[in-house]
Computed example of a mutant assay.
Amino acid sequence: MILALDAMGGDYGPAENCLGAIEACRKFPDLDIALVGDTDRIGSAIDSVETSIKGRLHIVSAEESISMDESPARAIRSKRRSSLRLAMEMVRSGEAGGCISAGNTGAIVAGGVLVVGRISGIDRPGLGVVLPTLEKPTLLIDVGATIRCKPINLSQFAVMGSLFMKHMVGVSQPDVRLLSNGSEEIKGDEVISEARAMLVENSHVDFGGYIEGNGVPFGHADVVVCDGFSGNVMLKSFEGLGELALKILKNEVDKRILAKMGLVFFLPMLKDLQHRFDYQRFGGTPLLGVNGAVIKAHGRSKAPAITSALGVARDFVLKNGVSKIKEEITDLLPGEEDV
């Protein structure tokens, strides 16, 4: 299997991206990786790697890259030799089974639509993130692909999220909820209310109604559906609260001698807790609704997170994630007359 990695994307490309690719090849013997970007910088990053691994790393030259602050659609259209666009073109042509980037989120979404293309029947793609909640993994969708949503977008996110959890995570009957400002049916604006009505009528989705923000960290749903703005705010809050809790605990321990003495007994538990909520474990989020495996990695990804993102992409390809969505989406989505 060949995966295309945007080696220039993210805060630490290409050095950390290349290290992550090297480790992914060591971890997954069936994996070859196309490193797309600056030939000289990539070559230097992989120069000392062992021959058996180096033979599975293929450099694809790209003279341009897309920065985090560029206009997404304009950049993906104008920079035809950018590392991100070339990686996506490899997916479209079939040269690569999927692509991974830690770069500009908007450009990844734009490239997914303009270069890879949408699955027939999907109005807008959605980025889904698996959150490590208290009770079970929860998919939050969308977290930034579609900022302003129509009811049909939320309805389709629910369908794709349900399919993802069913086929990729192994949840037999995913419980799907809409994020709202209350659990009562009268809550939510017009978009949320219309999306709710669509999902109530969709017998193929196990729709459980609304969920409030305070219920998400406890895992009260398998899939939480929202617009990209709300989802991104919730995701960043989730990450920030996890880091805050660990820092508060550390600060309190530093103030107390007995707590410092007892820390030796709690250290294994604290390491497990930190590991559980570390975004680098999950690595990447799938852009659902496009006609290929497109994985968005965290912009701050270092080597371990890139390795994880490549693992997510590999798993998505091996489990035929795109094909499964395409096979079932026609029956699960409402017809044009319902939209």
Score class of each variant (00 low, 15 high):
5 L>K: 06
7 A>K: 04
8 M>L: 02
9 G>K: 04
15 A>Y: 11
18 C>T: 01
19 L>N: 15
22 I>K: 00
23 E>D: 15
32 D>P: 00
39 T>N: 02
40 D>G: 06
41 R>P: 08
47 D>N: 11
56 R>L: 05
66 I>G: 08
71 S>G: 14
75 A>D: 05
77 R>W: 06
95 E>S: 14
99 C>F: 00
102 A>L: 05
103 G>A: 00
109 V>A: 10
112 G>Q: 03
112 G>S: 06
115 V>Y: 08
126 G>R: 02
134 L>P: 08
139 L>N: 07
141 I>Q: 04
141 I>L: 15
147 I>L: 13
157 F>D: 12
158 A>L: 02
159 V>Q: 04
159 V>E: 06
162 S>V: 11
166 K>R: 15
167 H>Y: 14
168 M>D: 07
169 V>A: 11
169 V>D: 09
170 G>N: 06
173 Q>N: 15
175 D>L: 14
175 D>H: 10
176 V>T: 08
183 S>E: 14
187 K>R: 09
190 E>T: 11
190 E>L: 12
193 S>Q: 15
210 Y>E: 03
216 V>D: 08
216 V>A: 06
219 G>D: 12
220 H>Y: 14
223 V>L: 03
225 V>S: 00
226 C>S: 13
226 C>Q: 04
231 G>I: 12
232 N>L: 10
238 F>Y: 10
243 E>L: 13
245 A>Y: 09
249 L>E: 09
250 K>Q: 15
252 E>G: 01
263 L>K: 05
270 L>S: 08
276 R>H: 13
277 F>T: 12
277 F>S: 03
278 D>L: 01
278 D>G: 07
281 R>I: 05
288 L>E: 13
293 A>H: 15
301 S>N: 03
310 L>M: 03
311 G>Y: 06
312 V>P: 00
314 R>G: 00
315 D>I: 01
319 K>Y: 00
328 E>G: 07
331 D>W: 05
333 L>Y: 14
335 G>N: 08
338 D>Y: 02
338 D>F: 04
339 V>S: 01
